[in-house]
Amino acid sequence: MSGSPAPPPPAEGTEEVRGLLARLLAAERFAVLATQREGQPYANLVAFAASEDLSTLFFVTPRATRKVENLRRDPRVALLVADSRNRAADIAAAAAATGIGEARELAGAARAEALARFLARHPALEEFARAPTCAAFAVRIRRYLLVRRFQEVTEVFLDP
């Protein structure tokens, strides 16, 4: 990605960090999606699924919602995935990943493919996700910020 700083030398094995990120994205079902409209941030919960290579996160939503209106105006988003469980110990023990990227609505074969992946993770949402009024979005993640051990943050770059 032009303009991005060069990736810092990894403090530990790339494999290990990526493995942790992959496990987190596979284990969690829900993410907080951040959008904005004219500088006003907006956050909401979405059920998500991640692509094999972690580069894309998928979610679905009815079109008549604030988030879709926001995305229509500005597709840039952040998604927060965390394994905290509302315990005091989470401060030190929980891991969280913030993915930063751009969302686009899918159609045709891409939508069908995304829905198959999404529904494998959330089979109960089939009727909801397949409704004609429901939009399927793919968020292409440029980088993740992985937070562990309270304040240890690692940036993970996904640009090809």
């Binding site: 006003q40 907006y42 009815p62 008549a64 919602t65 209106e69 909801f128 409704a131 004609p132 429901c134």
Partner: peptide
Amino acid sequence: LAVDGYLGIVTVGEGEL
């Protein structure tokens, strides 16, 4: 109102932020 007869959802208002 936005009436979604597929999902059974009625959305009220303009959705201003």
